[in-house]
């Protein structure tokens, strides 16, 4: 089974749908037109660029190139996590908390999957490493940013409760435990929903892409199951790490709530 190539006209027709939507939202004064068009433009440019980069890297499977692109992806994800916080940490922590936790979880899970499960040779083979890391980082980024935002927002809004509990002699871990638990749930809900709905409500993007690309359906299914599990683990470990670092950062050594470690809006 071969891939049916897409022409520029095919893509233009799809773009026309976005333009119609943009015109409709402009007419309805939804204030979405600008961001919709910018996002559509960004997706076109970014995917074309990454396509060229990947073509180059696939042709020269050397680890420094893979490491470089992985670093760029990680830094971009870290920036996105930081940008999505209503009350982000001040200074380097604002960027560092999300980036460090994504680095630990996504990279560890990707390396494990490449070397032990997929068995690519060499393990950093870019055809496997880059897409796998991309999917893990993308989902971990969502989970980490949701979880972190819930934690810092919760601490900000429930300041009087947290301080009341501190005054009664509870330590910082006990005081933040409720918000931390809720933050973990908030961060995990998207991937849990994805896993629960996969195959019933939705056909996951990667599997659909593989099938459209001509891969045998059962192989595509197996890869999708693998990816779902890896994403769930990577996201979960990433959120756990981010919440552990951020929770500690919200308190000082004397178990005082330090909201001055967060930026005000």
């Amino acid at each position: 089974m071969s891939v049916i190539p897409l022409s520029a006209l095919d893509l233009s027709l799809a773009a026309l749908l976005v333009l119609v939507l943009a015109a409709l939202s402009f007419h309805m004064r939804l204030k979405l037109t600008g961001s919709l068009l910018v996002a559509a433009f960004r997706t076109t440019v970014q995917l074309c660029l990454i396509g060229m980069v990947l073509k180059l890297i696939f042709a020269h499977a050397q680890w420094p190139w893979v490491a470089l692109i992985a670093t760029v992806m990680l830094l971009a994800a870290g920036r996105e996590v930081m940008a999505r916080q209503n009350h982000r940490f001040t200074g380097a922590w604002g960027f560092g908390v999300g980036t460090c936790s994504m680095f630990v979880s996504s990279f560890a899970v990707t390396v494990l999957a490449l070397s032990v499960i997929v068995g690519a040779d060499p393990w950093y083979q870019p055809q496997y490493a880059v897409p796998l890391l991309g999917m893990l980082l993308g989902n971990t980024m969502n989970g980490v940013s949701l979880g972190l935002n819930h934690l810092t927002q919760g601490a900000w809004q429930q300041r009087s409760v947290l301080e009341q509990r501190l005054l009664l002699g509870q330590d910082w871990k006990e005081v933040i435990s409720d918000i931390r638990r809720e933050s973990m749930r908030t961060g995990m809900i998207p991937i849990i929903n994805s896993m629960a709905a996969a195959g019933l409500v939705s056909l996951p993007g990667m599997m659909t892409g593989q099938i459209l690309g001509g891969s045998p359906v059962l192989e595509a299914v197996k890869y999708q199951i693998l990816i779902m599990f890896l994403i769930a683990a990577g996201t979960g470990f990433g959120i756990l790490a981010a919440l552990a670092i951020a929770s500690r950062r919200l308190f000082d050594d004397r178990h005082r709530l330090r909201l001055d470690s967060l930026k005000t809006q």
Binding site: Q158, Q164, R165, L166, L167, G169, R254
Partner: peptide
């Protein structure tokens, strides 16, 4: 002493109570 222990011994009742 550890801060939680200090706060159990030297207890502050704030003007507005909070409940969780």
């Amino acid at each position: 002493v550890a801060a939680p222990l200090w706060r159990r011994q030297v207890a502050l009742l704030p003007a507005e109570s909070a409940w969780w």
